[in-house]
Design a binder for these strands. Structure first.
Length: 474
RNA sequence: CGGGAAGUGGCUCAACUUGGUAGAGCACUACAUUUGGGAUGUAGGGGUUGCAGGUUCAAAUCCUGUCUUCCCGACCA
């Protein structure tokens, strides 16, 4: 007897293999012939499109416009801001030839587009009346990563990058935080991810930024995934690129800049947070298909009823799929679980005679008998319940993996024995942060602004200034 | 980039040690019978073994290089 389910490696046996199994078995992704350059298949892309449409609306509601920038950056342009180039140079891909001829100046494929935007901003910003300038683009970028993994770390990255310019520092900082909040709300409310939000340390911030804010998600195995960032640049790039505007006092001034982005990595976070040994589990608010309808047998009345239910659901905006294949019911049930459809509705002759269907929820695999009249209300109720349950389940697990250390010994013990995040009161010195990295392999995730530090830094004993999370990362 | 493992029809593997030019199960196609947790029968189609080079009368098999995947580490979104 064939048993495809067994082909998914058990999550608790080998988490890494389980993850790639789920990615491939649920038809989200496939490898291409280039390392780290993945094929996002229609089902995976549908999830991205859904993320894209929700976020794009949020960006537009907050006044941002989409545009498209070039994908090549001449070397001289990349070199303009020195902190930025130092951060990115080691991981860019270079184009050296065009049409068989060696190029006068080599060009990199954009690893991020700050310099392209700055080069353009220089031409179009003249006065305070041109500000704020609120742009966003949906595109791919290239970073030559050494280790790659579907969705979590690839060389070609599908993402969104917002770039904005402002009259004042305060306004730019407010923009940085506003966009971070949009990401946070999206990830909590739609992706059901109980994320931790905060500021990156000096050591971990984006190359060229004054401050980097981050959304950190915790995966099932306790690893951290940076799932979105928002940067405040001050006017460092503006100075380097000579972007100036005439302010309200008739004086030339450098504008203040931000950038922010999220990637298809969020799909990886969904999998590593919610999915299980049966396959993918998707929160209803992001699932491309909400209800999978499975007719059992070939009874025409059953088929007709299934079509009728699908129509009613679709009319209410609930997306459906009808599995009309010749497969056996058992196969269809398992397939439905691998694909992570939040609900499936089974209907056979026996149900039909009783005026009932069987609804099975993907998160708990619980089977529920429902009469025809109650289908619509029950489906809405269950979808809401699944959404809430996934968030609560993830939150509970995350909380069970949050630790606090007051001494270095305690930190080392926790780092060795437990998986998850470890919180400390930290003095803020990079040397203490590096000390922890060397001793335990854990890096700082973020400084939380929700709590104030107390006591002393467990490394150097100086007064602690920041509550900071550390963890292992993808 | 360092250490380890692996690449053979779509998938999981066999044949490799002891070179003689590829085989099974699943999947796929057709027909029939089936249908409440991964159906059954019959008949088919599909690979020259990741790629390149070398050794040899002869290479999936031996040698070299390279690419890709996975694991561990370093680096980084």
């Amino acid at each position: 007897m064939a048993d495809i389910v067994k082909e998914i490696t058990k999550r608790d046996v080998d988490f890494a293999t389980w993850y790639t199994d789920v990615c491939k078995k649920s038809d989200l992704v496939d490898y291409s012939s280039v390392k780290g350059s993945m094929i996002i298949r229609p089902y995976g892309y549908a999830i991205w499109e859904k993320m894209q449409s929700i976020l794009d609306q949020e960006f537009k509601k907050t006044g941002h416009q989409n545009l498209q920038m070039p994908m090549f950056i001449p070397e001289s342009l990349l070199n303009v801001e020195k902190n930025h180039v130092a951060g990115f140079a080691p991981e860019v891909a270079w184009v050296t030839h065009g049409g068989g001829e060696l190029l006068e100046e080599r060009m990199c494929v954009r690893p991020t587009s700050e310099v392209l935007f700055c080069d353009h901003f220089k031409k179009i910003i003249k006065s305070y009346r041109d500000l704020p300038l609120l742009y966003n683009q949906w595109c791919t970028i290239v970073r030559w990563e050494k280790t790659t993994r579907p969705f979590l770390r690839s060389r070609e990255i599908l993402w969104q990058e917002g770039h904005t310019m402002h009259e004042t520092k305060e306004e730019a900082i407010a923009e940085t935080k506003r966009m971070l909040k949009i990401y946070e709300d999206f990830q909590r409310n739609y992706l059901a991810l109980p994320v931790i939000v905060g500021k990156k340390t000096e050591k971990e911030k984006f190359a060229g930024a004054e401050a980097t804010y981050t959304i950190e998600a915790m995966m099932y195995n306790g690893y951290a995934l940076q799932n979105g960032t928002s940067h405040y640049f001050g006017n460092g790039f503006a100075k380097a690129f000579g972007i100036e505007f005439l302010n309200r006092n008739q004086k030339l001034e450098y504008p203040y800049q931000t950038s922010w982005g999220v990637t298809t990595r969020m799909i990886g976070a969904l999998i590593m947070t919610h999915s299980d040994d049966h396959g993918l589990v998707l929160p209803p608010k992001i699932a491309p298909i909400l209800v999978n309808l499975i007719p059992i047998g070939k009874d025409e009345k059953v088929i007709e009823k299934i079509n009728e239910i699908a129509k009613l659901l679709e009319d209410k905006g609930i997306t459906t799929n009808i599995d009309n294949s010749e497969k056996s019911p058992g196969f269809k049930f398992a397939e439905s679980e691998v694909k992570g459809y939040p609900l499936r509705i089974e209907l056979g002759s026996r149900d039909y005679e009783n005026n009932t269907v069987t609804i099975v929820r993907r998160d708990t695999l619980e089977k529920i008998m429902v009469t025809f009249e109650d289908i619509m209300s029950k489906v809405s109720e269950l979808l809401d319940d699944i959404q809430a349950n996934l968030y609560n389940r993830a939150l509970e697990r995350r909380n069970s993996m949050l630790y606090e250390a007051v001494s270095l010994d305690e930190f080392k013990y926790l780092a060795k024995e437990k998986s998850g995040f470890i919180k400390i009161n930290w003095c803020g010195d990079t040397s203490c942060e590096e000390h922890i990295k060397e001793e335990t392999g854990l890096k700082s995730r973020c400084i939380t602004e929700e709590e104030t530090a107390t006591g002393k830094c467990p490394i150097c004993g100086k007064k602690a200034l920041y509550k900071t999370y550390f963890g292992r990362q993808y």
